[in-house]
Design a protein around this nucleic acid. Structure first.
Length: 477
RNA sequence: CGGGGUGUAGCGCAGUUGGCAGCGCACCGCGUUUGGGACGCGGGGGUCGGCGGUUCAAGUCCGCCCACCCCGACCA
């Protein structure tokens, strides 16, 4: 544990990001380039994310299953756009048990193909539909440039794969899960995402339409934080997922897929973190309350520790940690837990005990502003209120930051200006050429076409042709 | 794959003209400390990225190789 200060976010955002992850013990670099080890503290956060999502998946009728890591190479080749999109980043196994394999095996970059294959075996009748399966697992994509959580060769995620009897029902599922992601992001992670449709250039390889939730990071860059795809009949045709309908007609299914990965941890870090380190939303934080006892002498210790232990028991309904380490000072602990983003710290020292109070320090309000004294009685109720307030304040702050950095762009000059330090919201005709030109000139890409935009029409900010909707342009991770 | 850079203790680095491999942090022990990143004393830890060459002598000079990082193309 280093005692040096973090680099500030304004000094060097990316160095701040790398260091805060390692110093908070969220993750570390693995011996293989581009791979990471998710450490217990980071994994505990992921488990809370999993629980919050899994509950929502179950509530919307989905069940979990597990499909294999290895996929026959030929499966990926069955869907043209899919193989074109993924082939550059595949890890392929050619030898097994010392023997060269008949057919190379791909380490799954995503599981549409193998799940499609299985669905073709399982689905025969309209009575078998819909199939609503999710899996929690890991996938491998051989990326060129990697960053902890944001882009690693192997990452953990969930991928939902559903099959339906009609396009409408599949489209409805696609939107339902997009909304599940948005609800999770906003209400559990306090990350105010914007849901929308991806452009043709940005959509998933093999999808008819892709949708995403887009989040703004603390440096104003965009991060795609979750995706939901309407796959039409593309994969059903590639894998013969057919069923007999009520009229004894053989039809292809309509399928969807949707995923959210450990990248979301990066979204949480970069949405809420400050120059002291992580700031974790109470609903997902592995530790919600840390208790730091403060004493100088043995006499004080024997007076304080029982109180600290009693407070810890009072707060048993929360994820609470009593930091009883004797080898570091309270000041060190304050900084340590702030680095780790624990939402609420309770300090208990001789002065507090004398006055029948504890001192509470809110992580989202660093320094004296976030400190208050709480009377000892009914601490659990007080803490519950404070954690809710922190959760709400974090969402409000992140939403304000986001809205302050999104600007409408009515001409090309202002577009290029805006994307240097924010998102531009501009009319776009939908052409890939216009999109490509913006990318070449500014490195900004289209993030998504928001779903809830008001009816209006205008002219494309790039070419001036008529445009029916606006899109977010932003530099993205 | 193109351009640039770096490899010396767990991490960050210094190492002069080729001459006993060092510093800070971290780690271990003892003591004093503890309300915002404590201090003293003592200690452990090295295939100097690898292979080869020059030399009495190579972390240092030469050659080849490898790995990693940064900037591009690619990207949940």
């Amino acid at each position: 544990m280093s005692t040096e200060k973090l680099p500030t976010r304004s000094e060097n955002y990316s160095e701040w990001y790398n260091q805060v992850i390692q110093r908070a013990e969220m993750a570390d670099y693995a011996p293989v380039r581009g791979c990471m080890v998710v450490r217990p503290y980071g994994w505990a956060l992921w488990e809370n994310i999993q629980q919050a999502l899994d509950r929502r998946f179950k509530e919307t009728g989905h069940v979990n299953a597990a499909f294999p890591l290895f996929i026959p190479m030929s499966f990926l080749e069955k869907e043209k756009e899919h193989v074109e999109g993924f082939s550059p980043e595949l890890a392929i196994v050619t030898i097994g048990g010392g023997e060269k394999l008949e057919e190379p095996l791909v380490v799954r970059p995503t599981s549409e193909t193998i799940i499609g294959y299985m669905y073709s075996k399982w689905i025969k009748s309209y009575r078998d539909l819909p199939v609503l399966i999710n899996q929690w697992g890991n996938v491998v994509r051989w990326e060129m440039r990697t960053r902890l959580f944001l882009r690693t060769l192997e990452f953990y995620w969930q991928e939902g794969h559903t099959a339906h009897s009609s396009a409408d029902e599949a489209a409805e599922e696609t939107m339902r899960m997009l909304n599940v992601y948005a609800d999770f992001a906003i209400n559990e992670a306090a990350v105010p995402v914007l849901p929308g449709r991806k452009s043709e250039a940005e959509k998933f390889a093999g999808a008819s339409a892709s949708f995403s939730i887009e989040a703004m990071m603390g440096d104003t860059r965009a991060l795609q934080a979750g995706t939901s795809h309407f796959l039409g009949q593309n994969f059903a045709k590639a894998f013969d997922i057919q069923f007999l309908d009520q009229n004894n007609q053989l039809e292809y299914c309509y399928t969807t897929s949707w995923g959210l990965s450990t990248r979301f941890i990066g979204a949480i870090i970069m949405t809420h973190g400050d120059d002291q380190g992580l700031v974790l939303p109470p609903r997902l934080a592995p530790i919600q309350v840390v208790i730091v006892p403060i004493f100088r002498t043995d006499e004080e210790q024997s007076r304080i520790m029982p109180v600290a232990e009693q407070v810890s028991r009072q707060l048993a309904a929360f994820r609470v940690k009593l930091d009883a380490r004797s080898e570091v000072t309270p000041g060190f602990k304050f900084n340590d837990w702030e680095m780790r983003g624990v939402p609420l710290r309770i300090e208990i020292g001789p002065k507090d005990v004398d006055n029948g109070v504890v001192t509470a320090a809110r992580r989202n309000q660093p320094g004296k502003a976030g400190k208050s004294t709480l009377p000892m009685g009914d601490l659990a109720a007080q803490v519950a209120v404070i954690l809710d307030e922190i959760q709400a304040a974090m969402l409000a702050k992140a939403t304000r930051f986001r809205d302050e950095h999104i600007h409408p762009a009515d001409d090309y000059a202002s577009l290029t200006q805006i994307v240097q330090g924010g998102w531009a919201y501009a009319f776009w005709c939908g052409s890939a050429d216009c999109e490509a030109r913006v990318k070449e000139d500014t490195k900004a890409t289209t993030r998504c076409i928001p779903l809830d935009q008001r009816e209006e029409s205008g002219r494309c900010v790039v070419c001036g042709q008529p445009a029916r909707s606006r899109v977010f342009f932003a530099r993205a991770y």
